[in-house]
Amino acid sequence: MTLLAVERIKLFSTRSPWWCMLLALGLTVGITAIIAGNWNEGPMPVLGAVFAHTFGLYVVMVMAALAVTTEYRFGTIKATFQAVPDRISPMVAKAAVVTALAALVGLAAGFGSWGLSWLLAGDTSQLALESANDWRHVAGVGLVYGAGALLALGVGALVRQTAGAVSIILVFALVLESVVGLIPNIGDDIQKWMPFTVASKFIMGDPDQGGMPADAGPPTVGALSPWGSFGYFVAIAVAMFVISLVVVKRRDA
């Protein structure tokens, strides 16, 4: 518990996490507001309210990467390991704090977007959260942000540099995963298993019928069920984090 408090103090005694959280929330909710305000193809579906969740996801991942890369950048990681020489427990505490915070931001972004859609969309007859799928679309944003933060933390701890970690995360998520689909023959099969593509299936996949135009919004691909997709994404995040722990433990600080 004390280590959780330590990481909480560290995170909230600098400004960048606040900015990142505000930006993640603002981007997601703001873009959703634009979508909702301009929705005129019949009633707005629940899915429409969470199309924009990926914007906040990237920002939250940057926040998570920063939480560890700034420690390397300013040498405070050495002070941390001096205070807690086993190294694993402070890293796990950091992951717990950052993941929880990211999940909270995700919940706020999901429900904020959904709430704003209520206010702005012309026809809200399909917007009520009535099924398990509806709840997954909205509350799932919190889960994906949490898992994404863990993944980013692992990358940050491995790379140790802000610029490097952020570039890897953004290039992977925004460029690589789409470009990979262009590879002839096998491209589509690889893309189906790319982490962010799969994560998006968890949020957007298998919507209830009704109110949803046939091909509105980004397509969801992937062989797994929505919850299976989430399990896959979490597994990748945990694997990355565990690898980073092993490396951090062995490497000179």
Partner: peptide, 17 residues
């Protein structure tokens, strides 16, 4: 030391640990 952290906050997390 993190340049944007106050001297006291820096010592506070160290102490807490």
């Amino acid at each position: 030391v993190h340049p944007n952290r106050s001297a006291r906050a820096h010592l506070r997390w160290l102490a807490k640990s």
